[in-house]
Design a protein around this nucleic acid. Structure first.
Lengths: 327, 327
DNA sequence: AAAAATTACTAAACCGGTTTAGGTGCAAAT
DNA sequence: ATTTGCACCTAAACCGGTTTAGTAATTTTT
């Protein structure tokens, strides 16, 4: 017989109410005698009572589950954050449901709907759009990695422009005199900010921004588009000797392309990339990277989300700094 | 006013029962007139009705949520499977809760308890122990990546021994004459199988298994233990010129150690490793890897778990093959 | 001694669905 | 003129908890 509060009540000769109070540790507060409390607890133990979380959630309106939604959970940057979010959430008694959007707003919307219907308490998301937030009012959201323009949510980001500036600047300091950038064909504000930082670094080095130095990759056909982008950069009348990649996926593919198609130039160019990942430690070309503070990002996401869930005053936006790692 | 079945019933002048039938598409089957059905559906649409998944789950006993539990979701092998599991689960209408065990049985048990209490329908797990399975009878489990000895569950594994044999064999074919192995200090059957495959390859090359060729790393202090393991292998009276790593984490750390401490030997040794990951494409030393069939693993895990959940006859165990990738 | 407060406990409503076991009324069959 | 069958619909129990608004008995206060 699967133990329920009702069964425990019957077996210890008290009401469901009493059992509920006792099992929730509110026995003293509710003036349940020590005797009765012991009896109830013993029965619960004896029957190996396991509370039904669903039933509790239904009646309290809180599921103690949060969503973690990113473009791709297998992207090392996101899976690292996922792990940390899981950790901080667990500390606060929350479980985590995860899903990948593939950077597709429709899929994102479906996921949010599904999570919302499942009565999840709130969502941490690296958003591809803001539609699902608009379509789901009164639902706690914390966005991270991207900040949507013209739309305010609780948000954790990094100083994209400044970090991009520093990364580009480092390339120049390390001897590059012509620096290209590989960006993504996508309308995301952090991309624009990173490009702005790049441009600013060029300016400060008395270089005009040359549009042929900016090449776009397409997320849906990444290997081929990066190959052709890099070919473009290397076949300029004055080829680049430094390349700035807007994120780890682009950089990883860039490394692949260079090892395969430009092996003779591996030590002639320098890379810079957002997101520090382990492999940058031992690949060629050398990569200067901007390490995002994963722990802080995850911790803040979880804290801000739970604050929102609990209706506390919420901090609107936090901007964190990266650490530039040279190699 | 948040729409519920009750509200819809009132507003369209029928009973909750009727609404429930209609919204579940069982209107015809239950002989609800076309007229009434339309009225109910219109009301639901007008009120933007969103079903409460919790309530449904509570009454049906099915949450349409599955758990995905691995040692570390940020390990690229597991995050790749996670992504695929999510995909196949979604196809079948299931959401996925994820958690990392850190290879700790107590944590594993806590996670399983939490998932079980949350009325999750079943769990896909790369187990660190079998205790939580024994402690949670009548709960659908599918294990993958590891097969626990003396304990039968629905299970997906790969041909560990054969793959390890092939990897080691390749090292010999590619010119290595002394091959060491880096293993993990952990009691997991797949580790033993992989070591067995390695030993078998040595035998077939008329070599006796030399215990000094087998070094152990400790998962909790991986960088230091791998360093000292590799030092051991390189300082033997006859140092190795091939190293077989039991998984991608070990190999990745091994690559790091070599780039840092043995840069002069990068092209003098050859690596072999389980789990093909992208970086193996462009690092030194060269890595021969065993690519696990992620799609098949994930698809089978999901299918077998759902079959179990639905009480269908379940296939007990599936063993898949890896693909050896040379570089 | 009556009123007020405290202790110890509970009935019943509620959360939002599903499902069982019927109940009408009307047409067809006996 | 009953009985049977069917089309159409619903009351009420149920899932397993939480919570409000109480009650009865005892103790304290006035």
């Amino acid at each position: 017989m699967k133990a329920s509060i009702k069964i425990i009540a019957e077996q210890s000769g008290v009401s469901k109410t009493t059992v509920s109070f006792v099992l929730n540790g509110r026995g003293d507060e509710k003036n349940i005698s020590a005797d009765t409390q012991k009896r109830v607890l013993d029965t619960a133990l004896r029957l190996n009572y396991q509370p039904n979380h669903l039933a509790r959630s239904l009646s309290t309106g809180r599921s103690y589950t949060i969503g973690f939604v990113v473009p791709d959970i297998s992207n090392p940057f996101f899976s690292r954050i996922a792990r940390l979010v899981e950790h901080y959430a667990e500390e606060k008694g929350y479980s985590v449901m995860m899903a990948s959007t593939d950077e597709k707003p429709e899929k994102e919307q479906k996921i949010i709907n599904s999570f919302h219907n499942r009565q999840i308490d709130g969502v941490i998301i690296a958003p591809s759009s803001v539609d699902m937030i608009k379509n789901t009012p009164n639902f706690p959201f914390v966005t991270f990695d991207r900040q949507m323009p013209n739309f305010r949510t609780a948000n954790i980001t990094i100083n994209n422009e400044e970090s991009a500036y520093q990364l580009t600047q480092k390339l120049f300091e390390r001897g590059c005199n012509r620096v290209g950038v590989v960006t993504l064909k996508a309308f995301l504000p952090n991309i624009k900010q990173r490009i702005d930082g790049y441009k600013k670094a060029l300016q400060d080095n008395k270089l005009i921004t040359d549009m042929e130095l900016i090449v776009e990759a397409n997320i849906n056909d990444i290997r081929a588009t990066i190959k052709s982008g890099i070919d473009t950069l290397m076949n300029l009348s004055r080829p680049v000797n430094g390349i700035f990649f807007l994120n780890n996926v682009l950089a990883t593919e860039g490394i692949w392309v260079f090892n395969r198609y430009y092996p003779q130039l591996l030590d002639k160019v320098l890379f810079a990339s957002f997101d520090n990942i382990d492999v940058f430690d031992y690949v060629q070309p050398k990569v200067i990277s901007a390490l995002q503070p994963g722990e802080e990002i995850a911790r803040n996401c979880v804290n801000m989300l739970i604050a929102q869930i609990e209706g506390k005053n919420l901090q609107e936006a936090i901007c964190l700094s990266t650490t530039i790692i040279e190699r």
